[in-house]
């Protein structure tokens, strides 16, 4: 009954002949709060992209709820929280439209948004304390507020698993504090959280499991266990806040 949410077996991923992930075997379970750590190029972003079906697998297996990722259809169980939305700065997009966009799915195409979807969006914006800004342009909000809107977007989808890309990167301490309070309440709701991050500092008390990548050429996973991370696995802190999307090669879509 205790089926893992994500099951990774002997995963290898290469870019242009370079091995980014080698021999990764991990199971993620419901309710875990996982931090994926490692320096730039350690493959933590690639691992998350592979789990979400955005990255081709060279060797090994990734299954979501027991189904191989390639055949997985139940994507509403997952929500990706990016650092920013490129399409919300080139043209006006309101906070409300941003949050509702999480509910856009192929199977909903024949109907308008439902009342319950709108109620969930209202509740999510209330949870991040930005309901009063719902009619504003997303890019007129502060960086921390925008990050909270993107978290609200994932909450409004009722996904079980939230995947976050450096949610605290580039925020001042007040905004980090309010985001951490938000993560705490999401965790208390029983959601599974996977965070890609450079440093554990601010969120260490929430994290139930830290996974350090980039250990060796033949075996990517170094440390895997509850924090604190032993010094032997800690790495130099590079403060490059690359987004999942900026860093990766083009896999889908028609970005210029």
């Amino acid at each position: 009954m205790n089926q893992p949410i994500v099951s990774i077996e002997r995963l290898c991923v290469e870019f242009d002949g370079e091995h980014v992930l080698e021999d990764v075997t991990l199971d993620f379970h419901a309710g875990e709060f996982i931090a994926l750590l490692g320096p730039n190029g350690s493959g933590k972003t690639t691992l998350v992209r592979t789990i979400l079906g955005l990255q081709q697998i060279d060797h090994g297996k990734v299954s979501l709820f027991g189904i191989p990722v390639r055949r997985f259809k139940d994507w509403q169980r997952f929500a990706l929280v990016p650092q920013r939305l490129p399409g919300a700065s080139s043209i006006p997009v309101s906070v409300w439209e941003t949050v509702m966009s999480g509910n856009i799915r192929p199977r909903n195409r024949w109907r308008p948004f439902s009342r319950s979807e709108k109620q969930a969006a209202t509740a999510a914006l209330t949870a991040v304390d930005l309901l009063n800004r719902r009619h504003d342009r997303l890019d007129t909000l502060s960086g921390g507020q925008q990050r909270r809107v993107l978290v609200a977007r994932s909450l409004a989808t009722n996904a079980d698993v939230l995947v976050m890309d450096e949610p605290t990167a580039g925020l001042d301490s007040a905004n980090v504090a309010s985001l951490i309070a938000l993560l705490d309440s999401i965790k208390a709701d029983g959601k599974t959280i996977i965070i890609v991050t450079h440093e554990l500092d601010d969120i260490e008390h929430l994290v139930t499991r830290a996974i350090v990548l980039g250990a060796s050429k033949h075996h990517s996973v170094g440390f895997d266990g509850p924090p604190p991370v032993p010094n032997a696995f800690a790495h130099d802190h590079h403060h490059h806040h690359d987004a999942i999307i900026d860093q990766a090669p083009p896999v889908v879509g028609m970005q210029p």
């Binding site: 992209r49 979400l52 079906g53 955005l54 259809k73 994507w75 509403q76 997952f78 929500a79 990706l80 990016p82 939305l85 490129p86 399409g87 919300a88 997009v93 439209e97 941003t98 966009s101 999480g102 856009i104 799915r105 192929p106 199977r107 999942i244 999307i245 896999v251 889908v252 879509g253 028609m254 970005q255």
Partner: peptide
């Protein structure tokens, strides 16, 4: 609209 916001996220939404 979702694809224009971010193609990767749209793909994760099954689009």
């Amino acid at each position: 609209f979702a694809v224009s916001l971010d193609p990767d996220i749209a793909q994760v939404q099954g689009i």
